[in-house]
Design a protein around this nucleic acid. Structure first.
Length: 721
DNA sequence: TATTGAGGAATTTTT
DNA sequence: TTCCTCAATA
């Protein structure tokens, strides 16, 4: 370990870096040099004689892992250390110990679109009505259970009320469907490995002696499954180092349990705890605001933010007429910074929801400001990309029925719904997978001659494609694209087809990059890797373009100049996330994360009117603006019409819809619970619940048909009876 | 079997 | 507004 480097560290940092055996908790505030501490720690471990092979570092995103690999490599010989995300680690483990885990190693990883198809199927198979049991809600509930390591069998035993029993049926069936298709969803990856480690002492022994030192970053965002997994891995040796900041926990909705980090010292009583409270990143004004904001959270451990920088910096708040004016102002200011020779890569704009990038993009294009929207997964959701990937998935895992159904008639080859249904029925009655049934399509008596010919032709196509699928992925993808007829189907279809061809070209380039970087490129490995892609992974640290991203994607990054837009009640905090106090605190932490990304200047803005889902709505400033302790923003200001009046409300009312043409809308008709109403299609019903949210009010009605429906008041066309 | 159109429902953050 | 599903029609 380089002495000069060690000398640069503060005493706390050094303490964390040099700690050798036993548990270690690093409570690190924003900008405290946490990443540096971790990389130095890896280097120090190697220095003290630990083989890199025995070190496992877990990061939050693949991007972070890649960065850590590079930084660690720059400090010394750390090649061979396993640095990846929880999910990637699980994929590796499951492939290696597939048999012990009761799965096949060529499993597909099901993303949320695939999951939703499977859960719909499960709901249907259970004879339930999709409207009363919305697949999305079921999926959510199943995901929560899996994150808590409650598998289908365990849940069946404890399910008592009606909803739970129904859910239990769906859960069980859903897992069956996944198993039949040799598919695992994101949560399965964690759950399977956690159970494997806890129940199979041989596997656990092997893995924990391989990974003698475990380092986990962003520990505040681990969920229960990850927690148990890590604990099982580290239990034999106790060499676990967790780093994180409870104030930056922003994934509760995904099952992250902030108690994991708060209770670390209980789990590991002999743990050494190091606090890194000095902030090397931000200017004083930013830190004061951040500190004042986060102090409002009651559910936290007191932690100071100590400024190290002595320059002042600037925090400003701006009000604009609407989102277009807001976006325009941001673009203008970015342009001005560029004119002052600020590198574009030092500028970022954050927002709460992805939809808000649209207005920004338009403004940036207009002002000719170079930018990148950090949204990697979107690319993989494009139709043409999903189509091509579906072919590749079927080649890697023939049992993957979701993928097979996607491509069986894409491009159209005359195999319609009726035929598919018949083959599926054939498969079920003969105990075959769909692809097995397809392979013997000429024996399916239920299908007419013409349709059978087409099925056989498709089956032959798959056989042909399957012939040579080892080795590099890019040439394979290219071949599949051509021979499947996909390429042909996009040619001559105008601009859309051109775009699709270009996107596929991008995909093939990305695959080529994978081939370059992978030690042993294989189709299976490639597919399993890209399934775990996140938005942040698409961020290119370039100096040439400003970055536009959600607040969630901003985690772990830093910029000289940061803009956060849409500081409005209902947006930030988001209305869906400000139900109970815990949710509001999480929204506050999310804002805190955004604020603390800024090194020098921070500009916050809101719009007085915002178009939300096609509606022009009056907004109210975010309560968070008053919590920053800024002089210019005080809740006591008298509201004045016509100017930046928003700081006037000490108790901001909910957003109210105001139509431009008719601002004075007559009072809403009352739909109090108990009210009898009539609906055009559902007939008579009684109001059960009424959530007053202006134009977005939701009425829950129990109809005489026995169905209960939640309707958006403005569209439902309800009449009182 | 493929395509079109009407009508209903839903709008957060992501490994 | 936009997506999705279902049913009618080519």
């Amino acid at each position: 370990m380089d002495e000069a480097l060690l000398a640069q560290l503060t005493s706390s940092q050094r303490k964390a870096v040099l700690h050798r055996d036993g548990p270690l908790l690093v409570l690190a505030g924003p900008g405290s040099g946490k990443t540096r501490v971790i990389t130095c720690r890896i280097a120090a471990l190697v220095d003290s004689g630990i083989r890199p092979y025995n070190i496992c570092a877990i990061t939050f995103t693949n991007k972070a892992a890649e960065e850590m690999r590079q930084r660690a490599a720059a400090l010394g010989p750390s090649g061979g250390a396993h640095i990846s995300t929880f999910h990637s680690l699980c994929v590796r483990i499951l492939r290696r110990y597939a048999e012990a885990a009761g799965i096949r190693p060529n499993f597909s990883i099901y993303d949320s679109a695939d999951q939703s198809k499977c859960v719909k199927q499960a709901v249907k198979d259970c004879g339930l009505d999709g409207t009363n049991f919305p697949p999305a809600r079921m999926l959510d509930a199943i995901s929560t259970l899996k994150n808590k390591l409650v598998d289908a069998e365990a849940f069946q035993e404890r399910a008592e009320d009606f909803f739970s029993r129904t859910l239990s049926q769906v859960y069980t069936r859903y897992q069956q469907i996944l198993a039949e298709r040799n598919g695992l969803d994101f949560d399965d990856l964690l759950m399977k490995v956690a159970f494997l480690l806890e129940n199979d002492s041989t596997v656990c022994g092997e893995l924990s002696s391989r990974f003698k030192f475990l380092l986990i970053d962003e520990y505040q965002d681990t969920n229960h499954a990850q927690y148990r997994l890590a604990k099982a891995l580290a239990l034999p040796h106790g060499n676990i180092c967790a780093t994180g900041d409870p104030d930056q926990s922003i994934y509760r909705w995904r099952g992250a349990d902030i108690r994991n980090i708060l209770a670390f010292e209980k789990d590991w009583p002999e743990a050494m705890v190091v606090k890194l409270e000095e902030n090397f990143r931000s200017t004083a004004a930013i830190l004061r605001a951040a500190d004042s904001l986060i102090a409002r959270n009651t559910n936290r451990k007191q932690k100071a933010l100590v400024a190290v920088r002595t320059d002042e910096g600037r925090v400003c708040v701006e009000g604009h007429e609407d989102e277009a004016a807001e976006a325009d102002a941001v673009a203008r200011q970015v342009d001005a910074l560029l004119a002052q020779k600020v590198p574009a890569g030092q500028i970022a704009v954050f927002y709460r929801v992805n939809a808000m990038s649209r207005a920004l993009e338009e403004a940036f294009v207009r002002h000719r400001v170079p930018y990148q929207v950090v949204r990697g997964v979107e690319f993989y959701n494009r139709k043409e990309i999903r189509d091509l990937l579906a072919y590749l998935k079927v080649l890697a895992n023939p049992a993957d029925e979701v993928a097979l159904l996607r491509i069986i008639n894409t491009p159209t080859r005359g195999i319609g719904k009726v035929t598919v249904d018949r083959v599926q029925a054939f498969a079920v009655s003969h105990g075959l997978t769909l692809s097995q049934a397809l392979a013997q399509a000429d024996h399916v008596a239920e299908v007419s001659g013409a349709a059978r010919t087409k099925l056989v032709a498709f089956s032959c196509l798959l056989d042909k494609l399957r012939r040579d699928i080892v080795g590099p992925v890019a040439p394979l993808a290219e071949r599949v694209f051509r021979e499947s007829g996909l390429e042909q189907s996009f040619k001559g279809t105008g601009q859309d087809g051109q775009d699709a061809l270009e996107n596929v070209g991008e995909l093939i380039n990305a695959a080529a990059a994978y081939d370059q970087q992978a030690a042993e490129p294989s189709l299976l490995d490639y597919l399993q890797q890209i399934a775990l892609f996140s938005d942040t992974d698409a961020y290119e640290a370039t100096s040439e373009r400003a970055a536009l991203m959600t607040l969630h994607a901003a985690k772990g990054l830093e910029f000289d100049h940061v803009f956060i837009i849409g500081l409005e009640d209902g947006l930030l905090p988001h209305e869906r996330g400000s139900g109970d106090g815990d949710e509001l605190e999480e929204e506050r932490r999310l804002f805190f994360v955004g604020v603390t990304r800024a090194r020098i200047n921070l500009c916050l803005s809101y719009a007085r009117y915002r178009t939300v889902r096609g509606q022009f709505l009056r907004t109210v400033a975010s309560p968070f603006l008053f919590e920053l302790g800024l002089d210019s923003v005080t809740p006591d200001d008298e509201p004045e019409e016509d100017q930046d009046v928003f700081f006037g409300y000490s108790r901001p009312p909910r957003s109210v819809a105001v139509s431009r043409a008719a601002p004075a809308r007559p009072a809403e008709p009352e739909f109090a619970p108990g009210q009898l109403v009539r609906h055009k299609t559902f007939g008579l019903g009684r109001v059960r619940k009424y959530a007053d949210m202006g134009a977005n009010s939701v009425v829950t009605v129990q109809f005489n048909t026995g169905q209960t429906k939640s309707l958006l008041l403005q569209y439902a066309n309800l009449t009182r009876v």
